[in-house]
Design a protein around this nucleic acid. Structure first.
Length: 370
DNA sequence: ATTGCTAAAGGG
């Protein structure tokens, strides 16, 4: 690596994250606090119908019954790709969350290949180092340190990859990673999303729509970040992070190696906020998606997306309405039933059953559509 | 490909 080009990206080790779920985590001093949060309040079990009123009504009064999917899954935030999965098929996304290891066999290879190609490209612009961590605060700290190192790189060298984004949208925290950001020869900030494909074919409309939504959402969140609309307070509120908790020694070491001297997450968040808002970062000018063939790396197609904020926001609102429990999940429309062909949940899909019954009972009589 | 009281993205 060239001297000026030598970039070091700090990345949290997978095993570090898995430590979080170990018993070790519960053995910490905070354990009592966490247990208290996790255990259900006593009255909930006693509610089981003792007077004449419907159970749901009783619970409703105490606000116990109405747990939104967000709460039921215990999600503090959603990934951008969760929402773009909803764009593909919301019902499928929900099954994916409910039945995690229901997933497929040979699809894995395609995903794996895609991931490898992305990793190889990431390594073109910076090295990866592993930082062992034990807490959620540490995990976020690594993300923030990465941002702090990437902003100056973008401004001086013009290209960064895997840039973390996050921000509250419609009251929900969304988290994602932008594939690539770079300045064009004209000096415009361009987001470039790479999509690798198993077969050397152009994506269908449904695929394009989903990818288009994904990058639009990235821009929306990124723009909000550089405009100072994403505050440390909002992040802390959603993630329930403790800003004063001291960071782990390995994280502190890596911060210092990068010239960052902080003691806790709160300090780091303030630095990130300042870096984002005071580095003359523009909003994203161009959204580009490139489809390439996995095997040959042939460019299959390039899309320049027109950012339509209102449409995107309406869509986000619609998707989040499911997560907040304002509506039931939906499957695909009849014209997109071809998506079911590659879905693992077709056999159990309630949405499909519903529409099959409908079309079966209505179609034979009236030849018209429904 | 799972994995998760959270790594997000990975492709169709």
């Amino acid at each position: 690596m060239a001297e000026t080009g030598e970039e070091e990206k700090v990345s949290a080790e997978a095993s570090g994250f898995s430590d979080l779920s170990d018993s070790e985590f519960l053995d910490l001093e905070d354990a009592q606090g966490s247990d208290a949060l996790l255990s259900k309040p006593g009255p909930s079990s006693e509610l089981s119908g003792n007077d004449g009123k419907p159970l749901s009504l009783q619970k409703r009064k105490r606000g116990l019954d109405i747990s939104s999917p967000l709460e039921r899954f215990h999600f503090k935030y959603l990934c951008v790709t969760d929402l773009s999965a909803q764009n593909w098929c919301e019902q499928q996304m929900v099954y994916g969350k409910e039945l995690p290891d229901f997933l497929a066999p040979e699809k894995a290879a395609v995903l794996d290949t895609g991931a490898s190609i992305h990793l190889a490209r990431e390594l073109e612009v910076h090295d990866l180092v592993t930082v062992p961590i034990t807490t959620t605060e540490d995990a976020w700290a690594i993300k923030f340190l990465n941002i702090l190192s990437m902003i100056p790189t973008l401004q001086s060298e013009g290209c960064i990859r895997e840039f973390p984004v996050f921000g509250e949208v419609e009251g929900v925290l969304l988290v994602g990673v932008i594939d690539e950001l770079h300045y064009t020869v004209k000096g415009e900030l361009e987001l470039a999303e790479l999509k690798t494909r198993r077969r050397p074919t152009l994506p269908l409309e449904g695929q394009k729509k989903k990818d288009c939504f994904q990058v639009s959402l990235y821009k929306f969140i990124f723009d909000a970040m550089v405009q100072g609309k994403v505050t440390p307070a909002s992040l802390i509120h959603h993630t329930k992070l403790c800003p004063e908790k001291p960071l782990g020694p390995s994280v502190l070491t890596h911060a210092q190696q990068g010239g960052i001297f902080v003691k806790c997450l709160g300090d780091l968040m303030e630095l990130v906020f300042l870096a984002l808002t005071l580095s003359d970062l523009p909003v994203i000018d161009i959204l580009k998606i490139e489809y390439i063939h996995q095997e040959t790396a042939t460019v299959l197609g390039t899309e320049i997306i027109a950012f339509e904020e209102k449409e995107m926001r309406d869509r986000v609102r619609h998707y989040l309405a499911y997560w907040m429990g304002h509506r039931e999940p939906q499957g695909v429309d009849v014209e997109e039933a071809w998506k079911c062909r590659t879905c693992n949940y077709t056999d159990i899909c309630e949405w499909r059953k519903g529409s099959w019954v409908l079309s079966n009972t209505l179609e034979p009589r009236a030849k018209k559509n429904k």
